[in-house]
């Protein structure tokens, strides 16, 4: 399977219409989004899908099969999306070597909501950089769709990051000189999407996160929570199958943090997006389908959040029935 094929397959598992519905609900959820915005997003529902489906083919034909692939992946566990085998990350500091990761073995499947939990300095961010193709392991291998990322060149890695992974950072990492809308458009520009389309898509996503009245604001003219919502909109711009978040709520109060997490949960449940959150906050475990405990660069234990997973599976089953 070529890289493009892999990306394409992943993208087609997403049903754009569902994506829209879930996000609208998320917009409802947040207190700041008023009824006016609801009607706005309602208007968009006609155009939204066609915009967002630019990566995939037509939404309808993949509706059923998309869900099927997801559940298959969940239950069988045969095709890990990301696979780490005996991964070491060793930092050389002068004479001293420091192993931030010591032989990590981890498989992440499509449709999972994985929380990586560990104390500060345990190597969570280091792990997340490897999962996000931002870094290469010192030893061992990281496979993405059965392809060793160490064998990919710079521009291929950039393409994977740009098309398959949506990053959410603890410190938001918006481009300070670009307005909100431009920040959300940026990933689409890296993918050379048609400017008009990219703009409409970004406007739509800003609407979803309830910030359609802040399109022109620079990040410095937004509150922390608003910035993180822009960052989420940006991470969804290319409609990536995987969302990687490093302490996404670390800089937010608990209410705003909850909104962000509920939003991610909806993305997971209704979009089937694979979500990986790295945190030291035990609270987040309740959203997870699987929790990876990490300490001193080693995996301490992996816990399946059974109930949650079941609930999740049920929901999908119901949904599929309803659609049929």
């Amino acid at each position: 399977m070529t890289l493009s094929e892999a990306i394409e397959t992943l993208k087609t598992t997403l049903d754009p219409r569902k994506f829209l519905q879930s996000l609208e609900r998320a917009a409802d959820f947040y207190s700041e989004s008023d009824s006016e915005q609801d009607s706005d997003s309602g208007d968009d529902s006609g155009n939204g899908p066609s915009d967002s489906s630019s990566g995939s083919q037509s939404g309808d034909s993949f509706k059923g099969s998309g869900a099927a692939v997801k559940t298959a992946a969940l239950s069988n566990g045969t095709t890990p999306l990301i696979k780490l085998t005996d991964v070491w990350k060793i930092y050389q500091m002068g004479e001293v070597e420091f192993a931030a990761l010591k032989g990590i073995d981890l498989e992440i499947y499509e449709g999972e909501f994985v929380v990586v939990l560990g104390p500060s300095g345990s190597g969570k961010s280091t792990l997340m950089n490897l999962l996000g193709c931002l870094d290469l392991p010192s030893r061992g291998a990281v496979f993405l769709q059965d392809r060793d990322i160490s064998e990919l060149d710079e521009s291929e890695l950039a393409r994977i990051r740009g098309q398959m992974i949506g990053f959410i950072f603890q410190s938001f990492n918006l481009i300070p000189t670009l307005g909100t809308l431009e920040n959300v458009t940026l990933p689409l520009e890296f993918q050379e999407m048609d400017p008009g389309k990219a703009r409409r898509r970004a406007e739509y996503l800003l609407d979803i996160v309830g910030l359609s009245d802040k399109k022109k604001n620079l990040p410095s003219q937004l509150s922390g929570g608003q910035r993180q919502r822009v960052a989420i909109a940006r991470s969804l711009a290319v409609n990536p199958p995987v969302i990687l978040a490093d302490e996404p709520t670390g800089n937010l109060d608990s209410k705003t943090g909850n909104y962000i997490l509920e939003f991610l949960e909806k993305l997971h449940e209704q979009e089937g997006k694979t979500i990986i959150i790295v945190t030291h906050d035990l609270e987040l475990v309740k959203y997870a389908t699987r929790v990876v405990y990490i300490r001193d660069g080693e995996i301490e234990k992996i816990e399946h959040a059974e109930k949650h997973a079941e609930k999740h599976a049920e929901k999908h089953a119901e949904k599929n029935e309803m659609e049929e």
């Binding site: 521009s155 950039a158 990051r161 990492n173």
Partner: peptide, 16 residues
């Protein structure tokens, strides 16, 4: 530097 890192994370190639 940090912006460059961010842009690379969201898909910028070296050439970009």
């Amino acid at each position: 530097t940090k912006e460059i890192g961010t842009m690379k994370a969201i898909g910028a190639k070296n050439r970009d």
